[in-house]
Amino acid sequence: MAKAHKYDRDHINTDEIIPARYLNTDDEQELAKHCMEDLDAEFVKKCQAGDIIVAGEDFGCGSSREHAVWAIRGANVSTVIAKSFARIFYRNAIDNGFYIIETPDVDKISDGDEIEVDFENGLIKNVTSGKDINFEPLPDFAREIINNGGLLEHIKKATTD
């Protein structure tokens, strides 16, 4: 079971997820210390392993920095649920084998709710409220990349098969 950290806002951007002043490193653990810092300075302290970020439209807009995905993953966040994602963030997440969920029903999740995610069947169970959310699983090619452990492993597999 994971706790939802809900940011009831659209356009949460890469400068908020990992400010550029920390881009002088690509060390995931170092980046994780500053995850979401300019949006919520307490985030890293309150985030437990497996927790989930919940947000509105256009999550991850702005820079192409993959550091945004690494900071979130490094902070032990298991997935991000948002109404929509910015294009490059979406692609970076898949490339890293990091599953993200797009659903218009994020309003059914409140900050602090305990939730369970069934990625295969496209189901979010909100244990706190009892409200379930069905979501469209990622397209097949994206799931294949994720299941292969990210784009580079996927390419390696394709060239050695």
Partner: peptide, 30 residues
Amino acid sequence: GGDSHTCTYGAFGAFSTGIGSTDLAAAIAT
């Protein structure tokens, strides 16, 4: 390009878009 503002080059009638580091790695290799 590994930068979101790679879309700049479209002014020349090219298709140009920004990518992250993993896509960049894949593009460099393949």
